[in-house]
């Protein structure tokens, strides 16, 4: 049996099912990160003092630039499909994957430095919420990379069979990836600068 409305829009919603699905998933993600941001506010307001300058601002800035750049390459990967340019799509999706990898490598160095100094999540309230928020965000980066690897590998075959469905899948991947970028846009000032 064929699954309906994976390419064409449902008459009642005006959307194909995948798109509505990814947006509802992102709504649940907003609540997940929202709960943690709320926890951060509660901890910070309740603390008698809050540390400043514990994290490397240059490294955080570089990672911000990397994630913003990866959001652009992701949206360009989708736009290339709409322009029927398969080669550019592969290039942009590959670049997005690489930028995600560089982000994680930077995060690895950052985490190693803190653990080396004994500044794990047990060290203080600040490091507990820092590792919780950035760890969960890092897991989202890994999740996005798994999906991108699939579309760079075995999932790419769908382009020949059903290009519209493939474009929709890349669009959904992009929506997720931009959300991961959006979360970082708030995490960076909250944890590194304030």
């Amino acid at each position: 049996m064929e699954i309906p409305y994976i390419v064409e829009a449902r008459p009642d919603t005006g959307l194909h099912n995948g798109k509505l699905g990814i947006w509802l998933f992102l709504a649940s993600e907003v609540m997940l990160f929202g709960a943690l941001f709320s926890t951060y506010i509660l901890l910070r307001v309740g603390a008698s003092e809050w540390p400043h300058g514990e994290l490397s601002v240059p490294l955080g800035t570089v990672n911000t630039i990397i994630l913003i750049a990866s959001s652009v390459t992701m949206v360009m990967a989708w736009a290339s499909l709409k322009l029927n340019d398969w080669g550019k799509h592969r290039l942009y999706l590959g670049l997005t994957f690489l930028l995600a990898l560089v982000f994680l490598i930077n995060k690895y160095f950052e985490y190693s430095e803190h653990f080396g100094k004994g500044e794990g999540p047990w060290h203080s309230t600040f490091f507990a919420i820092y590792f919780t928020l950035t760890g969960l965000h890092g897991l989202h980066i890994v999740g996005g990379m798994v999906v991108m690897a699939y579309f760079l590998g075995p999932g790419a075959k769908l382009w020949k069979k059903n290009p519209d469905q493939f474009s929709n899948r890349i669009e959904a991947t992009g929506l997720y990836w931009h959300f991961v970028d959006l979360v970082w846009i708030f995490l960076f000032p909250v944890l590194y600068l304030l």
């Binding site: 907003v30 609540m31 929202g34 709960a35 941001f37 709320s38 506010i41």
Partner: peptide
């Protein structure tokens, strides 16, 4: 989301 942020 704003309700969550208002809880603290």
């Amino acid at each position: 989301f704003f309700m969550l942020l208002f809880l603290p």
